[in-house]
Design a protein around this nucleic acid. Structure first.
Length: 497
RNA sequence: GGUCCCAUCGUCUAGCGGUCUAGGACAUCACCCUUUCAAGGUGAGGACACGGGUUCGAGUCCCGUUGGGAUCACCA
């Protein structure tokens, strides 16, 4: 058997930003192509003019490129099978629709949408399943001629076999059987001359020589229609793999950009690829995370590179079951990447724009000093703003009195502690104002004042940062420098005076 | 409702007839470490939806029930 070149495609509609379910579908198709050293193609399915949203294509390609899901052929990358935008291929669909009519595989339907509605209403009243009654399927040549002559608009419908079964083979779930009498004479070509998905995807997959059709399992119900079409054309079918869909983290309903969903803790569930980017997730963590849903590495490793995943990926071993989006695991993986996979310099590079976006002015030298201390403390890039943003404020925002006074201490005691601290830290030469020294003094303060570590360190932390959660106390003091540190202790004393 | 898909800890998963008193990860809890908060270490609790078959033997195969999901457009 000669190994055919593997060509897979991701075929989104330009109806807005790419959402996470789309990313997952694209990812698995891409993994499949890359595993086999094949081609991954981006095709834009814009056959519904009404739903077209300006700028969508860019939003989609931006999301893919953020994640490193690169395509070999696409609207802006010709590979000899273009154009890759369906609205630019209209004559092709029209030609093959006509071919189907000529070969008795399809027919013109002149029914108005009003009549269609009426038919469905009547069917509903009779408690029958809705669907087209095939009124135009057996129009006489004379009737057709007459309709055509009077310029009646029409659509082209597939002539579905009335009996028998259509059997599909799916790489992930095996055989899928459909009784033909439950199928519809689906519209192939709309009255505006545009194809529907059914026609367009089959024609394009054929002419683009797609070897594996990977798409979400919401397409399974129309799978038999496509199979019938392939047979009608007499073309060799590609291999199909219907991927499971992502369900909301609570397991209720699929993730969708059309309905907002919320987590147990009331946090909005992010659905757009861009929302994840903006929330401070790393693309490599995101990829690692998504590959782990519905597929697993094979041994018990949870963390691996994309390259390693490509080597092992096998679409046939994808779990056929839908899965809830395990959002907490994303946070964990993102944290792992931040603290274990990124160097200080690399993390600094990624944090810089995050701080800037928060309106802070970033000093590179200081950033490099701060980063090691936030590294183990954040799960998303954005959290760095809360933990260490104060390092980059133009003006210091002092803490309130309440924040300053720890549990089991009173105002006077806290003030006394700060005054004593001020005295001792003032004695440290500026060039020795280093973490270890500062800590030794802090410890001495603890025993001399009969306090405990968390009281002393806590008060100093709040005094330094103006917040109760921050980078570690003495590191923070060192980075701030002697002048600034003393100034802030003074401010704290004033607050308690 | 019709059709189709799916079903292992709360969640993501391993398991492809005996090695399963069901393994890993996240989350949770406890303890250790500790400078708050993290990180790290150790440990604990926690699942084969149910009922029938098939088989010497079933989480693993078959059927049914239940539950969840998808889909029923001149949208993809």
């Amino acid at each position: 058997m000669t190994e055919k070149v593997v060509r897979t495609r991701f075929a989104p509609s330009p109806t807005g930003p790419l959402h996470i379910g789309g990313v997952r579908t694209a990812l698995f198709s891409w993994l499949l192509a890359r595993h086999h050293g094949g081609k991954f193609i981006l095709r834009i399915e814009d056959t519904d003019q009404k739903r077209f949203v300006e700028g969508s294509i860019e939003l989609i390609t931006d999301a893919l490129s953020w994640l490193g899901i690169d395509y070999d052929e696409g609207p802006d990358k010709d590979g000899g099978y273009g154009p890759y935008v369906q609205s630019q291929r209209l004559p092709l669909y029209q030609k093959w629709a006509q071919w189907l009519i000529d070969n008795d595989k399809a027919y013109r339907c002149f029914c108005t949408s009003e009549r269609l509605e009426q038919v469905n209403k009547e069917k509903e009243a009779r408690k029958e399943p809705p669907g087209y009654d095939r009124f135009c399927r057996n129009l006489s040549p004379a009737e057709i001629e007459e309709n055509l002559a009077t310029g009646k608009p029409y659509v082209i419908r597939l002539k579905v076999p009335l009996t028998g079964q259509t059997i599909g083979h799916d790489l992930i779930r095996g055989e899928v059987v459909f009784d033909n009498d439950t199928l519809q004479d689906a519209v192939l070509l709309k009255s505006d001359g545009y194809p529907t998905y059914h026609l367009a995807n089959v024609v394009d997959d054929h002419f683009m020589e797609i070897s594996h059709v990977t798409r979400a399992n919401e397409w399974i119900p129309s799978f038999p229609l496509h199979l019938i079409l392939w047979d009608a054309f007499g073309w060799e079918k590609p291999i199909y793999a219907h991927l499971p869909v992502l369900l909301n983290p609570n397991g209720k309903g699929k993730m969708s950009k059309r309905f907002e969903a919320f987590n147990e803790d009331g946090k909005k569930i992010l659905v757009l690829a861009k929302e994840y980017k903006d929330a401070g997730y790393l693309p490599e963590a995101m990829l690692n995370f998504m590959i782990n849903i519905g597929w697993n590495f094979g041994d018990e490793r949870e963390i691996f590179t994309v390259q390693e995943a490509i080597e092992r990926f096998d679409i046939a071993t994808v779990n056929p079951a839908n899965s809830a989006f395990p959002i907490e695991k994303l946070d964990w993986i993102n944290g792992v990447y931040i603290r274990e996979k990124l160097s200080v310099e690399e993390l600094a590079k990624r944090l810089r724009p995050v701080f800037e976006k928060a309106g802070l002015k970033v000093d590179d030298e200081r950033l490099l000093k701060v980063v090691p201390h936030v590294q183990t403390r954040i799960k998303t890039l954005n959290e760095a703003v809360d933990v260490a943003g104060f390092f980059f404020h133009d003006t210091f925002t002092p803490p309130t009195e309440d924040m300053l006074i720890p549990k089991k201490m009173d105002k006077a005691g806290t003030r006394q502690l700060l005054e004593e601290a001020y005295k001792r830290y003032a004695d440290v030469p500026a060039d020795s104002f280093l973490t270890e020294t500062l800590k030794t003094i802090g410890l001495a303060l603890v025993s001399d004042l009969s306090l405990n570590n968390s009281q002393v360190f806590g008060v100093l932390r709040v005094a330094m940062s103006g917040q109760s959660v921050s980078t570690p106390t003495f590191e923070t003091m060192e980075i701030l420098g002697k002048d600034e540190a003393l100034k802030r202790i003074k401010i704290a004393i004033d607050i308690l005076s």
